[in-house]
Design a protein around this nucleic acid. Structure first.
Lengths: 320, 320
DNA sequence: TTGTAGGCGTTATCAC
DNA sequence: GTGATAACGCCTACAA
């Protein structure tokens, strides 16, 4: 299999290399019959552009990067997994490829940006796990590197485009479901205050309870099954519990057998044990991230950043 | 931040571009003092090679590709996740980057190989989920594309290098552990015969039982918690059950409360519910894959392919 | 040991 | 509408 370049195609179609390039990049500028002839040559030769050569000229690599994190607690690791899959799919459709990197800490990640940017000319980044005081976004923004975050910029100004899941809507839906099934003493098992995601999940439950005019009871635990179990034991009145994660929910199931429990993230664990859980639309979120990033990369992005809050859905199983 | 090329460095160090290139690629050919001067220039300018330009000349992209699969059953999705993380880490150390792709079916994957190879000049592939009648390895081998598989070539000749986890050793260890804790009637809950991995997992249990001179009892179910539960109910004599996966084990836990159960894969679910399980050394497997691939890419691979069988370990928790 | 010349495949520019 | 030319940054000859 000989190497097929734009020159090979040009010879076959009886045109110049430039005309072939035009057919690929700006077809409307080529006469239809010529265009057709070139296209046939491309197809019959199985020609494909050489991205490295193109990149040398255009400075664009058609490459995106995402960080793959160690599955922390483990239970929630699959969330990133599903997001990555969706992103890879969406990127392919949009003509991009996804590159992986690992990094420890925000500074390490920023160092990696520099490497990736100068060595591979990366076109853009998708950031996950945004958090309070996140230095990554401003670093990228200062250098005009296109990026989108999956997760809103907690505590920072909304100066870039992001996609997020409406965490509060998720726990609100869970709470409404429990109300509809007759519960009135619905507790909440959450994370310590301060994490944006965790606070939003608590808020969805709290506001729904307030609307219903019902008293609330909530406890706090670091994420984990065992810590969730011991915290749940302090929920003495509740007949039902909304939890900030499936890990906590699992703990609650153990500590409070027989009560209605709802988790968050719809992880494999939830499916396995029949735990009702709030499911994030990860594939859609990934697709939207790609859409926004593509806009940025094509220079057709609106001047004001876009913010997308996607509604999660409740997957009802045995526990509620 | 101006663009720093090899020419910038050359000017700064007062040498020719070629000398800079030599310092980077064949330092031993440059006089030590010159070398040092060039290195200082590189450091102070923050120079990094442009991979696209290098690739144009050398034909090597320093890029590897791995497929990211949709988390099938879900429970076992995290296995790939952890492997990917390890691979990304190992690749970075070896000077490579990992690119992701998705594909449906073996043919779709092969089509993707062509694209990746011609468009991005990929240096090599790491394949996962090898199976009987896998057409991917021969396609790659015929075209002399460097690759390594994580998972041995079931039913096909061992003509390429691979890394795998010794599945039989895992269930054997689980069985020995159960024997040591006093069980004699140890059943097996496995997948239908025909999958290489599943058969190996059964074999480890069966041979250990045979060595101990004990009678065996085993049932079969497609992977899943519910199917595992109903199959487990047919294990009437066993006081302990070794399972081919954590999903099946979860089913067994439900169907046979109080009996000793061991799962396989040490997924998040196992940690969450306290299931004793066989843990695969995924980070190490990924590292080995990278090592073997690097050998291949550097042309310093032995003429006969390398096969690595890594021992898993048993993580003992509450259920056994 | 160091420097010079040429070209990898593509596209932007500017003639025709 | 089409084609010639140069340039992107690097590396491999080869020459000095």
């Amino acid at each position: 299999m000989e190497k097929v370049t734009i020159a090979t195609v040009a010879v076959r179609a009886g045109v110049s290399r430039q005309t072939v390039s035009n057919v690929i990049n700006t077809p409307e500028v080529v006469r239809p019959e010529t265009r057709e002839r070139v296209r046939e040559a491309i197809a019959s030769l199985g020609y494909r552009v050489n991205q490295a050569a193109r990149q040398m000229r255009t400075g664009r690599s058609k490459l995106l990067a995402v960080r793959i994190e160690p599955a922390r607690d483990g239970i929630n690791g699959s969330v990133l997994d599903r997001f990555l899959h969706g992103l890879t799919d969406a990127a392919t459709v949009a003509g991009y490829r996804v590159m992986l990197y690992t990094a420890s800490g925000d500074d390490g990640e920023i160092a990696t940006y520099e490497e990736l940017l100068t060595e591979y000319d990366l076109d853009g980044f998708v950031l996950t796990s945004t958090h309070h005081g996140d230095p990554r976004t401003s670093w990228l923004a200062e250098r005009d590197v296109p990026f989108v975050t999956f997760g809103r910029p907690w505590g920072a100004p909304d100066t870039h485009s992001w996609v997020d899941v409406d965490n509060a809507a998720g726990t609100a839906a869970a709470t409404r479901h429990l109300l509809a099934t007759g519960h009135t003493r619905i507790g909440f098992l959450g994370w310590p205050a301060g994490s944006g995601v965790g606070d939003a999940r608590r808020e969805g439950w709290a506001s729904t309870m307030a609307e219903a005019g019902l008293p609330t009871e909530d406890v706090v635990a670091v994420d984990g099954v065992d810590s969730g179990a011991s915290a749940a034991e302090r929920l003495t009145n509740a007949t039902a519990v909304v939890c900030a994660s499936d890990s906590l929910a699992l703990g609650a199931m153990r500590a409070l057998p027989g009560r209605a429990i709802v988790g968050f993230d719809d992880t494999a664990v939830a499916r396995a044990v029949g735990l009702t859980s709030v499911s994030q639309p990860l594939a859609e979120a990934a697709g939207r991230c790609m859409d926004l990033l593509a806009e940025l990369l094509d220079g057709r992005a609106p001047t004001t950043p876009t913010h997308l809050l996607l509604p999660p859905s409740l997957v009802v199983r045995r526990t509620a």
